[in-house]
Design a protein around this nucleic acid. Sequence first.
DNA 1: GCTGAAAGACGGACGTC
DNA 2: GACGTCCGTCTTTCAGC
Lengths: 150, 150
Amino acid sequence: MDAMDRKILTELQMDGRLTITELAARVKLSVSPCHRRLRDLERSGAIRGYRAVVDPSALGLDFEALVFVTLGWEDRDTVASFEEAVAAVPHVLQAQRLFGDPDYLLRVAAADLTAFQQLYDQQLARLPGVQRLNSTLVMKNVVANRPLPD
Amino acid sequence: MDAMDRKILTELQMDGRLTITELAARVKLSVSPCHRRLRDLERSGAIRGYRAVVDPSALGLDFEALVFVTLGWEDRDTVASFEEAVAAVPHVLQAQRLFGDPDYLLRVAAADLTAFQQLYDQQLARLPGVQRLNSTLVMKNVVANRPLPD
DNA sequence: GCTGAAAGACGGACGTC
DNA sequence: GACGTCCGTCTTTCAGC
């Protein structure tokens, strides 16, 4: 993982569909070594994959909220079954376990306020081990998932 | 935006480097119409772009925190200059303006606790208009940026 | 770094439902 | 109007040297 590898990662985070030819030109390398580096980055797991970035509003998901979760207990089984269950809810785009209180932060997408309310009552509130939920609406995404810095 | 378009978006969110041939096979369409749909989805902005997903630890970024920001004032200039300044900090991966209090949530990456402390004191605390910061460490990413649901 | 064979991208034309 | 099946050419990939 030298400076050249980092340049490659930076370029591919900005455009994941760069051809090797283009990528090589941007990082000022010729095609073969660039191709080898890319293969190694993919095999080592430094590049986990490639994703299309989709506009949520194109799918009618214009509503986003944060949900803070406090579990009733902190034993291993409660944590494991909560995490498994939360990962199975498609509208939960992101879930992080935190130090301190609350235990989890979820980032949730929904079509509108009504859909969110249903999701909240019927799915999130029923996740195993949940003691308390607390949610906040997102007004605006100021910075959306920026590429990692060097 | 019909069911076929949604299938295409779903596939490309799972693998953004699918060839048209592969994509067409997965959504059970022949290559030409699949190609046309993809072009239209890109032109309409439903697909914003493509990104490589990079493992943060490959870049030595093993530390992640949430930072809640409360501004001192809520006037338009304060908000605008804060948002501009926060977008210029590379370690801020995500920033959302919230309803209620606090005003913003930032998701921040750093190499370790020391690096985070420096970032916190020297950059985040000095952002224009900030009255108060409050941060929480991320223990684990349970769900990391899942594709959007249908 | 170069080469060559195989695969894919991309646009067009045309017939069908 | 959208799909499917040809077609052509150009570009890209990727292994071997």
